[in-house]
């Protein structure tokens, strides 16, 4: 099963990616769409496929992979299934970093200023969470710390957007808190891709160390795991992925909670197997959500976070209930 899981998930992502390219309000026929995408023969169709739908589908894959992988990695490190970037305020803080960069004009200062600012926001949040809840803190400490960080980041994001001289800024609070991929462009793909790829590389190389950590810190240290180094790389890897994803798509919650939870029984408890599976699973989930928002309300910008929360929040409540039953 484990060996078949990654190919099956990859096939699912490929199918959803194709569906994402073929579904949209313009109502193009599938044949015309693909011909325009590949050959670029007709101007209008080519613009729709290459400049509007392709970046959207690519971003859904990138953002989903980032959130799924970051969630699995945080859960592996904290040995707590509730550690999810959105719930513990990492996405919210990344959004705050992005909003600050955009409203101060710093985002235009140089190419990667926007994702780097979001990354900085995410680093602060991950460090705060590790400091407050740490590897030895229980679930309750983790969730309480997450609530505090999320609330503060959300409030500051609202404040910055309300203070903006731009008449549209305040109405975008919902975008930064719920996330959307509508009308993104290749520029956004190029901004996010390097940081998400780098973060993925860093986290995947730590998979073995996270495996060892499941036996406890002392056992892991005796097996040659450098705990301080692991922590540093984990912080940077998670912040890089979540920061870049949030900078271009807003904060999309629950992906990092749902995906590892669904896949964990299929791959076993080993982080080294769960990390890559969660990345691909995350891509599938965000692609599905992004296709669903186009099918449910094609002319309006329904936010992705609404759908992921509808799936994720009940699961979250279930996990809390289970955790409570275990007396943790």
């Amino acid at each position: 099963m484990t060996r078949l899981l990654l190919p099956i998930l990859s096939l699912l992502v490929a199918g959803l990616f194709a569906a994402s390219l073929l579904i949209g309000p313009a109502g193009l026929s599938p044949v015309d769409s693909l011909a325009a995408l590949i050959r670029g023969d007709r101007l209008a169709e080519t613009l729709v496929m290459r400049e509007i739908r392709l970046p959207r589908a690519l971003l859904a894959v990138l953002v989903g992979a980032a959130l799924g992988l970051a969630g699995a990695a945080m859960q592996g490190y904290l040995r707590n299934p509730l550690a999810e970037p959105g719930l513990i305020g990492v996405s919210g803080s990344a959004a705050l970093g992005a909003v600050l960069a955009l409203q101060t004009g710093f985002a235009g200062a140089y190419l990667f200023a926007l994702p780097l600012s979001a990354l900085a926001g995410a680093v602060v949040a991950v460090l705060l969470i590790l400091m407050l809840a740490g590897a030895r803190g229980g679930s309750i400490t983790l969730i309480l710390a997450g609530i505090a960080v999320s609330a503060l980041a959300g409030a500051l994001t609202s404040l910055v957007l309300n203070l903006s001289p731009n008449p549209f800024a305040a109405s975008e609070i919902v975008f930064w808190m719920m996330g959307s991929l509508v009308d993104r462009s290749m520029d956004h793909v190029l901004l996010a891709a390097p940081f998400i790829a780098l973060g993925a590389l860093v986290l995947l190389t730590q998979a073995r160390a996270l495996d060892a950590l499941t036996l406890g810190e002392d056992a892991a240290a005796s097996m040659g795991v450098h705990l301080a180094r692991l922590r540093l790389l984990l912080v940077l890897g998670v912040a890089s992925m979540v920061g870049a994803a949030t900078a271009v798509a807003g904060a999309i919650g629950f992906v990092g909670l749902v995906v590892p939870h669904v896949l964990r029984p299929l791959v076993g408890a080993r982080p080294s197997a769960l990390l890559p599976a969660s990345a691909i699973g995350g891509a599938a989930l965000v692609l599905m959500a992004d296709i669903a928002v186009r099918l449910i309300l094609p002319e309006r910008d329904l936010k992705l976070g609404v759908l992921t929360a509808l799936v994720g929040a009940p699961l979250f409540l279930h996990l809390i209930y289970k955790t409570r039953a275990q007396g943790l």
């Binding site: 400049e51 800024a169 290749m186």
Partner: peptide, 15 residues
């Protein structure tokens, strides 16, 4: 308008 907004980004979209 002055300041930044995602709403206005569509005006400069490559398409």
């Amino acid at each position: 308008y002055p300041g930044a907004s995602r709403s206005e980004e569509v005006l400069r979209h490559p398409a």
